[in-house]
Amino acid sequence: MGSTQEEVEVSYDVSNEFFRLWLDERMNYTCGIFDGTDNLEEAQVKKLEWISNAAKVTPEKRVLDIGCGWGANIEYMVTTRGVKDATGITLSRAQAEEIGARKLPGVEAHVISYADFQPEQKFDAVTSICMMEHISTPEQARKGEHISLYRDYFKKVWEWTNPGAHFGLQTILRNRVPRNRTDLRDIGWVTYKIFPGGLSLRLEDVIMAVNPHWEVMEIRTRREDYGKTTGEWLRRLRLNEAAIREKWGDEVFTDYERYLDTCVRGFDKHYQSLAQYSLRRID
């Protein structure tokens, strides 16, 4: 079901040091919010703030972060929002290792799929930033299985939470299939080479799948912000070209340059967008 561990590790386990060269200092590998700033670091903090607000994160709540990446969101919740009990799950061993290295009090990170996760205690708030893209493969979507997979995910999160829980969610959206050869090929290449097993969602997929477990309280799209985010990643990647080619080889550099350039075009031409959601558990 969805991306396998091997596929996830293709996407996130090139090397933590490699990603550190072109992401922000906290290693957020998702869209920032550039409201009132052109600085990537500040934009990423604004994103983390939005997601925590959407999940109504407060210090006394037990929080789950699904697809926790290298721990940027958990670190923010613990250090800035005062959370004392946070759990992260990821399928990437390199990411879990990085979270461990951050030595955050009250934080547990598990290498496990959401499909197998069975927490002993329930959570009061949930966040998930761009993990749903790994729930359905393109092949499963072509067979029409994707909505059931997304709904099953929302059902699981409902089962893991206490009444009154809120869920701060962020997903990449696929808005429109390109109509020209270059863009079609590049987007297909990114899907299969950089994010094998992954698929961005359509906004209507989320709206259908949250029922009957979660109520949509707020949705905000951020297409232009993701264009700026990927543009800044591309700029930083190119600044480090020599070091990347030397340490990880020419193919890693050219692949990631093509991927990020495709993303910038994809957001600019409305092929892709991004949405942030505040969901409330239907008790």
């Binding site: 429109r176 299939v177 390109p178 109509r179 020209n180 050869r181 079609l184 090929r185």
Partner: peptide, 25 residues
């Protein structure tokens, strides 16, 4: 092939000055 089919759609959209929704396509 699928790429040529989408290119054909893109050409038609340009000619009739419209964007067809993906789900209708």
């Amino acid at each position: 092939d699928s790429i040529s089919t989408m290119e054909m759609v893109g050409y038609l959209e340009e000619q009739v000055d419209a964007l067809f929704p993906d789900e209708e396509l």
